[in-house]
Structures are given as C-alpha cells and as structure tokens.
C-alpha cells in the first residue's frame, strides 16, 4: 500500500457535487444558503420529509465556501403503515459553510436524531451548530485537539508525521551520551567519558 502522508487533494474538480446533474441516485438534490437553511428544512419537514436519515459533512479545502453539510431526508409517515401505503422519497440538501468560522443553525429541535449527528460533525470537522443543547466531542477523547476529518489534518495525526530512527540506534549519538540498549550504567558512563576524552584530544 502506498502510504500517503499528504492528504490526497489531487483532482482539479473542486466542487464534484455540481458536476453530475440530475443526481446519480434516487434522491432529489437541493443546495441552500446557510441563511435560508432553517426555513427550508422546516418547510420540507412540514411537506412530509419527516425523517432525517443522516447529517454529514465534507471538506473541499480549496473551495469557497470550504465545507458542505449534507442533510439526507426521507419522506415517511409518522404512524404505522404497511408496505403498500409507503411511497418513500429521498431528498438531499447541501449547504455550503464558510471555512474561517464555520457556523450553522442547529436542527435538533426539528429532528431529535440530529443531536449526535451534529456532535459528530462538530467533533470531526469543527463546524459549530448554534443552539445545540450539548455540543461536545463524541468520537474523539474530550481533550483532543484538531478535527480529524478535515483535509488538512494528517492521516496519522499531528506531530506523528515521521517516525525517525530512535536516537540510540545512531552511532554518532554515542558521543552525545545516549545510552545504547543493554548496557550497565557504569559501562555507559565509561563509554560517555571515553567519547568525551576522544573529542577533546582530537
């Protein structure tokens, strides 16, 4: 497997979502501005899109606005219904979010299930949902820094970019007093002393 430490921002297509219209799947696609998001989603919910299937995000690093938050909606009755009475329909609402201070209004009051989904987007992308009752990290530990699913976040995490050979594996480090493994303290001190003498005489 080719290990890529660089995030793969290869394609020239900065906004792949705009390229295939009509959509490839069975969903209708809409794009709304953040200012009209609440209004539109409320309207859709009243039109019968009563289930929020999923809430996710994507990071298009070089695009303005940088993020997309994606709402997958499903038309679903709120009461028991047999197969024949169902006419499910899917709808995808995309909303661009600015990269410098990503903010969106919450939809937890419309759909209860948005709670954990918004926390996850906040955790992994750093998008803040205003009005969310308890916006804190959900997947990563509480004291984690950074948002792992952003494209500028390295695959193995920050400060783990290279795995250099340990210092004691290098012969030149003996001079600096780094103990090679498997030796007693005295032998080490002796070795360090000899190395220091050798340096001063040469």
């Amino acid at each position: 497997m080719p290990s890529t430490q660089q995030p793969p921002i290869a394609g020239a297509a900065i906004d792949p979502t705009s390229l295939r219209a009509p959509s490839l799947d069975d969903a209708r696609v809409e794009r709304v501005a953040p200012a009209h998001l609440r209004e539109r989603l409320e309207q859709l919910k009243n039109d019968g899109f009563s289930m929020l299937l999923d809430l996710g995000a994507a990071d298009y690093l070089q695009r303005v606005p940088r993020f997309d938050v994606i709402y997958h909606l499903l038309k679903m009755p709120m009461a028991p219904a047999p197969v024949t009475a169902l006419s499910p329909q899917r709808l995808r609402v995309l909303c661009g979010v600015d990269g410098t201070s990503p903010h969106l209004p919450t939809v937890t009051d419309l759909w209860k299930s948005a709670d954990w989904a918004e926390r996850e987007v906040f955790d992994l992308f750093g998008i803040v949902f205003d009005g969310h009752p308890e916006l804190r990290r959900i997947q990563m530990p509480r004291d984690w820094e950074g948002h792992p699913l952003r494209k500028d976040y390295p695959l193995r995490g920050p400060a783990r970019e290279r795995s250099p050979r340990p210092p004691f594996a290098l012969k030149s480090n003996v001079a600096a007093g780094t103990p090679p493994s498997g030796q007693t303290l005295e032998a080490l001190q002796e070795q360090v002393k000899r190395a220091a003498e050798g340096r001063s005489t040469s």
């Binding site: 921002i9 290869a10 394609g11 020239a12 297509a13 792949p16 979502t17 295939r20 990071d59």
Partner: peptide, 30 residues
C-alpha cells in the same frame, strides 16, 4: 469520474447508506 452519490442497502440493522464523493482521482475523496 467526479461526482457525489448516496446509496443505501437494508443491512441487518437498518438503512445502511454511503455518501461518496469522488474528485476524479484513484482514491475516494470522502
């Protein structure tokens, strides 16, 4: 080819869906 797609199947636990974005490369973008 670049584009985005959502596909779902009925997994043993319910609707399992993948929303996949491609930027035209040899790795999925998202």
């Amino acid at each position: 080819p670049p584009g985005d797609v959502y596909h779902a199947v009925e997994s043993p636990r319910g609707e399992l869906g993948y929303y996949i974005v491609s930027d035209g490369g040899n790795r999925p973008y998202r």
